[in-house]
Every structure is written in C-alpha cells, then in structure tokens.
Amino acid sequence: MEHQQLSSAEISFAPVHRDDTVGVICILSLAKAFYIVSIFMHLGDEVRNLIMTIVVPLLLFVWFIAAFLWDGDSWRNLRKDYNKGNPAKQEHAAPKPASEGTLK
C-alpha cells in the first residue's frame, strides 16, 4: 500500500489491510487486562461487592468512548471538502495554502 499513488478512498484508514484482525487484537488485549486485574491485582479473590463497585463504574466508558468516537468521525465528514485530493474541492477555485484553508 505504501508505494503506489493513493486515492482518498484508499488512504481513509491506515490499518485497512488488517481491519479483520483489529477486533481480535482488541479482544485479546481486554483478556490480558482482565487477567492482570483478576490475578495480579487479586481482584478475583476479593468480596463480590468490591469487585462490582470497581467494575460497574467502568461501564461508563462505553458511552464515553462511543460518543467521542462518533463525534470524531463526524468531524472527518465535516472536513472532507477541505482535504487535499477531494473531488468536491477540485470543482472550486484554486486551492489556498493549507494554513489558511478554512478561514472565512
């Protein structure tokens, strides 16, 4: 992928070529995290209620991550017209220098 002319569609995500492995890697990382916490930190040996008070608040991360990434993805869509090589951009007048590109 490195040594060829890239269109914007191809460079939209760098790890495209291993998208299928990302999910596996995330699950394996979570598994490692689980074992660190339960075995090394001995949380698995504590009273159930203590485990719950530590694990349940971490559920807040679900919405924390989802909402942030969702909005980040939305910014990418909003910026699309300003990006180099974007077809929409080429219909307009000559491109300005990048540092002033978004000034109104």
């Binding site: 991360f61 924390f64 991550i65 942030f68 980040g72 993805d73 910014w75 990418r76």
Partner: peptide, 29 residues
Amino acid sequence: YFLMSDAFTFGAFLISYGTIRFSQEYWPN
C-alpha cells in the same frame, strides 16, 4: 478507587486520541 479515577485520566487521554484519529483521513501505520 484512586486507580479507578486514574483509569479515567488515562481513558480520557486515549479517548481523545481516538477521537482525533477518527477525525483524520489518514493515520500512520
């Protein structure tokens, strides 16, 4: 509980990173 709160500090950093990465067309390999 301190570690839990520290998890939120790191979580905020990593989630910020993820958010910016999602907002980019290209990210280094």
